[in-house]
């Protein structure tokens, strides 16, 4: 499979901003976290180009992410990113994804350290792909985005206002062909997607009517603390902190071998 979520870059201001697109599969709805991944990958192209493909950002912090909706099968998702900082050692940025005039996802206060690119990718291959993305035809590849979210889940266990589940990150090499060729890392956005799925399950378990009205999802203070390698067991947890008539606040975490891997706060809001 491929884990590339930018098909072309239409507008580009070095070190500053970019606009791009990616095509949704015709038979499958890509989860919103992977639309956020697409925004992050577009920011990554700005940062890598700025530093001559010597370094690349690796996702670490998301101050705020609002998931307002999903793209429809076959839609073209328009991506836009603006860098707040594009330094040699770290970047920060904001971005959004829209489709057919609807805002799907916005991210703000995203931050990532810049790490040596050649620890993760082939420098020339990245240069070539960037050139293709900037070409009039773009660099569309056959992407099986469905595979990206087919994760084995354990049974969810509930205890009062909390829920737990376990996932084991895939070991197939193909899964990591793009993330990353030289250092396979389970994508942090998939960890986040799994945590949000657990939060939804908990919300429904405690009687919140999420299915009737798709809620607005606000995810904040996402912190991805460590790389997750293939075959690692992730223990996911969601805890319902508070519920009001039109919102619920949850704390999310992923741990592995008693070490925190990722943490986030989440709010569901519905009418």
């Amino acid at each position: 499979m491929r884990f590339l979520f930018v098909d072309c870059i239409d507008e580009f201001e070095p070190g500053g901003l970019a606009q791009g697109r990616f095509a949704m599969p015709r038979d499958f709805v890509v989860p919103a976290c992977l639309i956020a991944e697409a925004i992050g990958q577009l920011a990554g192209w700005i940062a890598m180009e700025r530093w001559q493909f010597n370094a690349r950002p690796v996702a670490a912090l998301v101050g705020r992410c609002v998931i307002a909706g999903e793209a429809r099968p076959g839609e073209s998702v328009e991506l836009a990113v603006e860098m707040d900082e594009c330094e040699a050692d770290a970047v920060s940025y904001a971005g959004r994804a829209r489709a057919d005039g609807r805002t799907l996802v916005t991210v703000e206060r995203c931050g990532a350290p810049m790490l040596p690119l050649e620890d993760f990718d082939d420098r020339e291959a990245m240069r070539e792909r960037f050139a293709a993305l900037r070409s009039p035809k773009g660099a569309r590849v056959e992407v099986d985005r469905k595979l990206a979210v087919t994760l084995p889940w354990s049974e969810i266990t509930y205890d009062w206002n909390s829920a737990k589940a376990t996932i084991i990150t895939p070991t197939e090499r193909d899964f990591y062909a793009d993330h990353f060729p030289r250092r396979p890392v389970f994508p942090a956005t998939l960890s986040l997607d799994a945590m949000i799925r657990l939060a939804r399950a908990l919300a429904e378990h405690v009687g919140l009517k999420l299915a009737a009205t798709p809620p607005l999802i606000r995810v904040s203070d996402v912190k991805l603390r460590t790389f997750v390698p293939p075959g690692q067991t992730l223990e996911l947890a969601a805890y319902l902190r508070a519920r009001e008539s039109a919102s619920a606040d949850l704390a999310l975490s992923a741990t592995s071998a008693a070490k925190r891997v990722a943490t986030a706060d989440l709010r569901f809001e519905w009418n």
Partner: peptide
């Protein structure tokens, strides 16, 4: 704190005080 927390702290301080804090 872990290393990612240091970056988080710097970003938060930059926003709180509207300043730039080069990491090194």
């Amino acid at each position: 704190a872990e290393s990612i927390d240091l970056l988080d702290i710097v970003f938060r301080l930059e926003r709180a005080f509207k300043i730039k804090l080069p990491r090194n």
